[in-house]
Amino acid sequence: MTDLPADLPGELEARADASAGRSTPWRTGLRRFRRHTVAVVSVGYLLLVVAAAVFAPTLSGYDPNAVDLEHVREAPSAAHWLGTDPTGRDVFSRLLHAARVSLGVGLAAAGLAVVFGTLLGGLAGLLGRWVDSVVMRLADVFLSFPTVVVTVVVAGILGPSVPTMIIAIGLFQWPVCGRIVRGVTLSLREQEYLLAARAAGAGSFWLMTRHIVPAALPPISVAATLAVAQAIGLESTLSFLGLGVQPPTPSWGNMLTDAQSLTVIAGQPWLWLAPGIAVALTVLAVNFIGDGLRDAVDPRQS
């Protein structure tokens, strides 16, 4: 059998691609993402925060929990770059260590939400019928609760701790991801290539892991990023209210707790300005990255 003339252009293109670096879906996405300047800057910022969190002990030079009663409520100086808090702890050191907790909680909660959402959404879409109804009504229920109020109640019942908070946040974030995965599954379910895969002997689990999740990955990654931003924000809120990360462990949220008095707000801005800016910038950066990802994976939406 001879080669078909109709194939020649494809062949040529393929060779051109091979010389210019192959154009895989990932490469195309990366190229689009790089065009999104704000998102690229945000990635840079976030890498900085992550580095700060990872190397916090070496960078800060102070134990974040070391009480120094001789230097309380000191303004920023060469010794204490961001001053000290009412018990003389170094604010800069606490800020860096807080990044660990805040980012960790954000990522863990979002991860939990994505795993839950993918699993439940995929099952709902693939199995349909009553499974679909039950899962989606459950999602509606979770989405219709005011998240903060319920997490406050949950934290109140189970007692405030980091795992409780992660579970509580994850529980309220999964429906977003679940709906996306269900939607992708439903639209793919009718595709002939899924039928072809079934005709080749694939079962539901195989279809899920090899065909549906990879196809859903782009929208999931966007949802996951936005979930991280939300989770970081929620963590701060809960910790600020005293229901999240418990002192003395620092988190951006519980550092802001110090700013509950007017004298602090007016007289000691270094106590709340830095963690406040850190939360705001981080949430903003993660959201920008989410936007960039959205443009990269789904150019139709921009």
Binding site: Q191, A199, P214
Partner: peptide, 21 residues
């Protein structure tokens, strides 16, 4: 049995192949 002792060829190779694999 599917894809083992029984192989299936579909009508439209445009839609029966996963475009991102």
């Amino acid at each position: 049995v599917r894809g083992g002792p029984v192989g299936m060829i579909f009508q439209d190779p445009m839609t029966a192949l996963n475009p991102v694999m």
